[in-house]
Amino acid sequence: MSKSTLNAQSQEAVAAHLEECMRRTAQKRDKAAFGELFDHYAPLLRAYSLAREPGAMLVADELAQTVLVKVWNKAQTFDKQKASLNTWIYTLARNSRIDMLRRNSRYTMEIDPEFLWAEEVDEQADPFVAVQQKRAEDTIANAFQHLPIEQQEVLTKVYLEGKSHQESAEELKLPLGTVKSRIRLAIQKLQVLVGR
């Protein structure tokens, strides 16, 4: 068995275990289970915040705390038919970051972001779409490591560092058009989109 299959298997086992912890957190208000979620996700959340603001440890702690308290308080609303646990927590982190950017006035206070990404609120889970999405996530996991470094680099800027195309172009010293085309090529290779 190749190393990468082993790796994928152990990652899947970790994901299944975390989902079980999430179920116990939601249904039994089990603090030990929540503690395991905390230990897994706190470093990820901190790294996510530090990607945008290197060295800002307090900001990173604040984001991690906000998101993890939400995980506890909103545990009952998690539905694995709609999104994986990773996706659910990533979405909470992304939205919390937007809230923080508003508070330090890098984003406008005039627009309330609550319904700008709140697409899941009134939706029924669709098992067919869920299966498709799971398949897309597997494809991404396999293909990501084979992306050329320069394409991984722009995706990191946009997703983890939260940089606009313009900011990414400036920091990577590339023309704006190159940044955009690298994103397009990467998304194409990862086969993320349907119908394009």
Partner: peptide, 24 residues
């Protein structure tokens, strides 16, 4: 497609060095 692109973000968010996370 938005949801699939969000899935890519979630994947990248979940990556990173396990060693570093363990140290953290």
């Amino acid at each position: 497609n938005y949801k699939r692109l969000r899935g890519l973000g979630a994947f990248m968010f979940g990556q990173g060095s396990e060693q570093e996370h363990a140290a953290s």
